[in-house]
Write a protein that binds this DNA or RNA. Structure first.
Lengths: 217, 217
DNA sequence: TTGACAAGTGAACAGTGTTTACTGTTTTGT
DNA sequence: ACAAAACAGTAAACACTGTTCACTTGTCAA
């Protein structure tokens, strides 16, 4: 017998979801530490004292589990992104801070971030005039809105189409993160040249400056 | 008995190298079509009518074979990069063309390009005052020199350290390529907005413009 | 001709994601 | 309360993967 709408999840269902969540947390920890190569179904099963097959009672495939890990990452990212204060806020500064946050959070979870852009090519999510569903899409949507709103407000100069500029900025941030993940010392070692701050945070900050300046009126 | 220096490779050695090259070409074709997932040792062995173990008479590991495929890609890239003509050349235009070529060639071999930046993190190659050895390093070195020379010539404004600007530009190009590889329609669909050219080439061109403009005096 | 080396094979090892038949156990409907 | 159905978990197998190793065959050189 099937209910039309399950308003109250059964105790069984609750236990199931709770255990599922537990598995996800363990997987998230292992994946964050050792990456996709280190997160095998058997390894994960060992970690939670289950047999490998048991995992498939909670996830249809490793891919599905991985997608949830990525989704969890983007939810964390969305939480950390700053919110603009219309009264006292400086919009370009707000955008700068947003881009920095995007890059910083990504660098703090390199395996998650890298995995989110590897594997099979996916269709480009609609980023204008739609309500995105997944956290991943919401994050990208947020990023695009930053630029679009900035142009609307008159803080940024619309050199070319709005979406083109947003794409360029997003790509630039994405590229820096990926290169910093891939090259061990990409964000380090050139402080002597100018005496300025060195380290990943400085590279991120200067990159954001470069982009904001390229957009500003 | 071991020769001090093998000036003339033996016929045996020549055959070995020739067959090795043949294997590489087949691997390159399969990898270009189906990516790393589609290029297994067994599949490759099938393709050349060998047994899987035979591959290891020519390569110590799949990783070594993959590295040679990546190296071949960067050699092709280097061949396609334009050369600056000191007499008649417009330097910013030359840089723009160079960046476009980098992105275009990368997009033509998405699996190769993606593989070159995935896997284990590697140390950042020295990009100033050294002669790079591999084609991969030479390509990156070339890219950095573009910016450095432009600043020296006075065509680009040194906002911040030379290397910081070069990093930002490289990262921006890299990011756009990766996003265009990962998102199926990243370079398409917004022509209606402005009536301008659409398609990957247009996105690449506008991205290059964005970067050149950000550097120019 | 004999001995050393090269080329290639087939089987095996350890690992992967995944499926299936099979257990108990728990929940559910009558 | 009892039977039936659903659930949770296991062991074993399947079809892959990269890699190694003993073994045979062929080629070249002293």
């Amino acid at each position: 017998m099937q209910q039309i709408a399950k308003l109250a999840p059964s105790a069984t269902e609750q236990r199931h979801q709770k255990k599922r969540q537990m598995i996800l947390e363990v997987a998230d920890r292992v994946f964050g530490r050792d990456g996709e190569a280190g997160l095998s179904i058997r390894r994960l099963a060992d970690e939670i004292d289950y047999s490998p097959g048991a995992i498939y009672k909670y996830f249809n495939s490793k891919q599905e589990l991985m997608n949830e890990l990525k989704e969890m990452f983007f939810e964390r990212l969305l939480e950390e992104l700053p919110v603009f204060d219309d009264e006292t806020g400086d919009y370009p500064l707000f955008v700068r801070s947003s881009l920095e946050t995007y890059m910083r959070v990504a660098l703090e979870a390199p395996h998650h971030y890298e995995a989110a852009f590897s594997g099979e090519a996916e269709p480009m999510p609609a980023l204008l005039d739609t309500s995105p569903t997944s956290a991943k899409e919401r994050a990208f949507f947020h990023l695009f809105s930053l630029i679009g709103d900035g142009i609307e407000r008159g803080d940024f100069a619309p050199e070319g189409a709005v979406l083109q500029v947003a794409k360029s900025v997003w790509a630039a941030c994405h590229g820096l993160v990926i290169l910093m993940i891939h090259f061990q010392d990409f964000g380090r070692g050139f402080g002597a040249e100018t005496g300025a701050d060195t380290g990943p945070d400085a590279v991120i900050a200067r990159h954001a400056d470069f982009l904001i300046k390229g957009m500003s009126v």
